[in-house]
Design a protein around this nucleic acid. Structure first.
Length: 497
DNA sequence: TATTGCGGGCGCT
DNA sequence: AGCGCCCGCAATA
């Protein structure tokens, strides 16, 4: 309570027809949420508890004045006034609320390979993590990273993946195998999705104890190219994307926004440039604690220890090396390199990046364009393409206590986490968090206490849904920044376009 | 051919 | 009862 005024109002909405406005203190809000709501739930088929803080500033709310908690299994979930930007790589015990118009949320998208799990609850969609496809020999790529492919969601397809030769040309005898996810008390990390009229609730349980798989797009491209087919390089460069990919990559806002949400800007204390920052991203605790959550453990405390700063990512040779005219017109790939030949080619890879490769001899030893092309495919696929996400995966051994912290969430302590890649540290480029603006650009109306606010989703993303009256000049500046970054970091699948 | 969601069923705790 | 997991099915891309 501030000055005798309620800090927030709660509105019970029954069947969307009738609202009851309650003016509460925090203590009463907890009582309502935990005691009254379940009781009312037994009386009505649909009740939404709506929280509309007096101050709709996310910053204000994140400081914990009144942050009602919720669980995906609660009888009623709160109706919130602000939403989270979509996060493709949620890790740890995370809860988020997305706007109903968030396309990625509607698709229950995730960077992790999540498969549907029947939880016998039609109202809550549950998914469990399939882990990551790794090389049995734990080989390293020329850039020092490791093989971490995306497991197929389909059981049948995933079984076919296993046992195949490691796609790493430098690997000797390695086979692909599934590294299962054991990040939730020895069980796979689970994601829960719950749709309400006003929001899409997401909750993750467990912290992944394995690297990120390649992004979904990479495997899609491979599939669209035809997995077992020998492909001529010039064909690769002219292959047309399927409809979905075209839509995905032609969308001007399909890439993550470069802007750091307001509640994370304090982390940008480094002097690195926006694209060459070598500081390990460490999200602020409030990153996963959106406005109304006060329950969640601090993100930085539990998941933020992703290791110390690492060297900047080695860049790839520029596109000029991969022009079709420079390639042989004959089949230049070996059948066992099927993964490599299917890797997307990035034609627009930025020239300005540092070109010091961690393993220059690998390239120096290349005695023909073909092998050089293969290396480029691999690196592109792993880092620049959809794999840009996976390559940025913090490796378990770099996590320090990161993965171990997951056990803190487990009541059962009998499970001992596996040791992954224990022999030495694994190189991974910067950033482990991507927040993708998948929401349509159409205008959305967001309910606020006492008023309606209209803004497009980009602005919403940019400003973290906090302010309706954002600064127009600043927004323009940031949009320019976004556009520039988009051109820079555009997915390398565009190289196929 | 793979993805996604749904749902029946089983075993375990 | 809750959970993990297997399986099959259907719709879709």
């Amino acid at each position: 309570m501030v000055g005798g005024q309620p800090e927030w109002d709660a509105i019970f909405n029954t069947e969307g027809k009738k609202d009851f406005i309650l003016r509460n203190s925090d203590a009463l809000s907890y009582f309502i949420l935990k005691i009254v709501s379940p009781l009312l739930r037994n009386r009505f088929n649909s009740i939404n508890l709506i929280y509309c803080p007096r101050s709709t500033s996310r910053a204000d709310m994140s400081e914990g004045t009144s942050t009602p908690e919720w669980d995906i299994n609660d009888a009623v979930v709160p109706r919130v006034c602000s939403f989270d930007p979509f996060s493709e790589w949620c890790d740890g015990h995370v809860r988020k609320v997305y706007p109903p118009a968030c396309e990625e949320a509607r698709r229950h998208a995730s960077g992790w390979a999540m498969r549907n799990t029947n939880n016998h609850n039609v109202h809550i969609l549950k998914k469990s993590c399939l882990g990551v496809l790794v090389c049995s020999a734990r080989c390293r790529l020329p850039d020092g990273s490791r093989v971490h492919l995306r497991p197929a969601i389909c059981d049948k397809a995933r079984k076919k993946q296993q046992g195949k030769p490691c796609p790493n040309r430098l690997c000797n005898g390695g086979r692909l195998e599934v590294q299962p996810c054991r990040g939730h008390c020895g069980y796979p990390v689970t994601h829960f999705w719950r749709h309400t009229e006003h929001a899409i609730f997401f909750q993750a349980k467990g912290a992944h104890d394995h690297p990120r798989p390649e992004a979904k797009g990479a495997s899609e491209v491979r599939r669209s190219l035809g997995a077992g087919r020998r492909v001529r390089a010039d064909k690769i460069l002219t292959v047309k994307p399927d409809k979905q990919m075209a839509q995905k990559h032609s969308h001007p806002h399909a890439q993550p926004p470069p802007l750091i949400p307001d509640n994370q800007r304090v982390q940008m204390a480094c002097t690195c440039g926006p694209f060459e920052c070598s500081c390990r991203w460490r999200p602020e605790p409030s990153t996963e604690n959106y406005a109304i959550t006060a329950w969640s453990p601090p993100e930085g405390q539990h998941y933020g220890s992703y290791g110390a700063a690492i060297p900047p990512a080695p860049s790839l040779p520029s596109q000029q090396h991969y022009e079709p005219s420079a390639l042989s017109t004959e089949d230049i790939f070996h059948p066992e390199e099927i993964f490599q030949l299917d890797q997307p080619i990035r034609l627009d890879f930025p020239m300005e990046e540092n070109t010091t490769l961690e393993s220059p001899p690998t390239f120096a030893d290349l005695n023909n364009d073909n092998s050089r092309l293969e290396e480029a495919y691999w690196l592109d696929w792993q880092r620049a393409a959809g794999g840009s996400e996976s390559s940025e995966t913090p490796s378990p051994e770099l996590f320090g206590s990161g993965y171990q912290q997951a056990e803190a969430y487990c009541e059962q302590q009998s499970y001992m986490p596996h040791a992954y890649y224990p022999e030495e540290a694994q190189y991974y480029p910067v950033e482990n968090t991507r927040q993708s603006p998948a929401i349509d650009m159409q205008e959305q109306r967001f309910y606020r206490y006492g008023q309606d606010c209209t803004q497009n989703s980009l602005d919403i993303q940019t400003w973290n849904y906090t302010e309706c009256a954002f600064n127009p000049s600043e927004a323009t500046e940031c949009k320019q920044y976004f556009d520039a970054h988009h051109q820079h970091s555009v997915d390398s699948f565009n190289g196929l376009l």
